[in-house]
């Protein structure tokens, strides 16, 4: 469906996207993952034809997006990072306007609008001015806008940014239900968000693709260290000796806790080692009760560090 060939974008001297290649098949749900300023939005803007690449090209079903924009753009629904809303229009007026812009047949617009409003749950705010809507509703109106014209391909730039947890789950479920009959490209800088909905993840860093895999594989390969954060009641020396009994433990960091008589402890074990049970028995033998224990997933920053220092070096 989408093919990017040596896609490059320079802004003056700054290289925003550096010769990236990828291919997205029909029906796939792809996540662009990367920190702010990695080139995610720039890449998405190039896919939709909003900006042109400095080098390379984007093919949508084999057609260059810039050669025949009127044909290819019909296939794309785009929700930019900031939803393109007109504040002084009502939701209904806005959607009618976008429908006309996207050349939806006159008799079709009303029907499509009702369907989409039901889907993104904005039926009750149709008559309100967009200016007065909450951030979550604005985001949904933006999403509704991208669905108009029934495009096969949806490009969603950080669709859940700035929403509350309940709204995030709703939008995620919506994306999941849309993925049945759409090809979706979405971006985020949050790993769990991507892994919740995507079939495949492209990690972008400093304008390069540093990894491309399923979320499960990425998590397995990338979470090299098994880290445990714990709160333990007891004496520091006692806790340390108890933990040192476990052979797979590589590093122990102990800090005083806010709670009285308790310590904050972080331990690290080797790759793919589950040491939770051993830790539990070791500490209970020494009569140091565990008040809290949570495994620490590797944060995005650490994944990036790993990718750019280890695997990135091989690329």
């Amino acid at each position: 469906m989408i093919k990017a060939i040596d896609l490059t974008k320079r802004f003056g001297k700054h290289l925003a996207v550096n010769k990236i290649n990828f291919e997205i098949a029909k029906g796939e749900v792809i996540g662009f993952l990367g920190p702010n300023g990695a080139g995610k939005s720039t890449t998405m803007n190039m896919i939709t034809g909003y900006i042109a690449p400095s080098d390379g090209q984007i093919l949508i079903d084999g057609d260059d997006i810039l050669d025949d924009p009127e044909k290819t753009r019909r296939k794309i629904g785009y929700l930019p990072e900031q939803p393109p809303l007109y504040m002084d229009m009502t939701v209904k007026e806005y959607l009618l306007f976008v429908g006309r812009l996207k050349l939806v047949e006159k008799h079709q617009i009303k029907q499509d609008m009702d369907k989409i409003c039901d889907l993104v749950k904005i039926g009750d705010v149709q008559k309100r001015l967009i200016r007065n809507l909450s951030k979550g509703y604005k985001q949904r109106v933006g999403l509704a806008q991208s669905l108009l014209g029934n495009p096969q391909l949806l490009i969603l730039d950080e669709p859940t940014v700035g929403l509350d947890p309940k709204q995030i789950i709703e939008i995620r479920n919506l994306i999941k239900s849309l993925s049945k009959d759409h090809t979706i490209v979405l971006s985020s800088h949050i790993l769990p968000e991507i892994s919740a909905v995507c079939d495949r993840v492209l990690i972008i860093s400093k304008g390069n693709i540093v990894a491309s895999d399923t979320p499960e594989n990425l998590a397995q390969n990338l979470v090299g260290m098994h880290q445990l954060h714990m709160r333990i009641k007891g004496d520091e020396q006692k806790v340390r000796t108890a933990l040192e009994e476990i052979q797979t433990v590589k590093e122990i960091v102990i800090n005083p806790s806010r709670e009285e008589n308790a310590l904050n402890v972080v331990i690290e074990a080797g790759q793919n080692e589950d040491i939770r049970e051993e830790v539990f028995y070791a500490l209970s033998r020494n009569k140091c009760p565990i008040l809290q224990m949570r495994p620490m997933d590797m944060s995005l920053e650490e994944i990036f560090l790993n990718l750019t220092t280890v695997e990135g070096g091989q690329n």
Binding site: N45, R73, Y78, P80, P84, L85, L101, K102, L103
Partner: peptide, 13 residues
């Protein structure tokens, strides 16, 4: 308002 992102990506010249 970044609404040009809409206008420049719809299938209208």
């Amino acid at each position: 308002q970044k609404t040009d992102q809409l206008l420049l990506t719809v299938p209208i010249a």
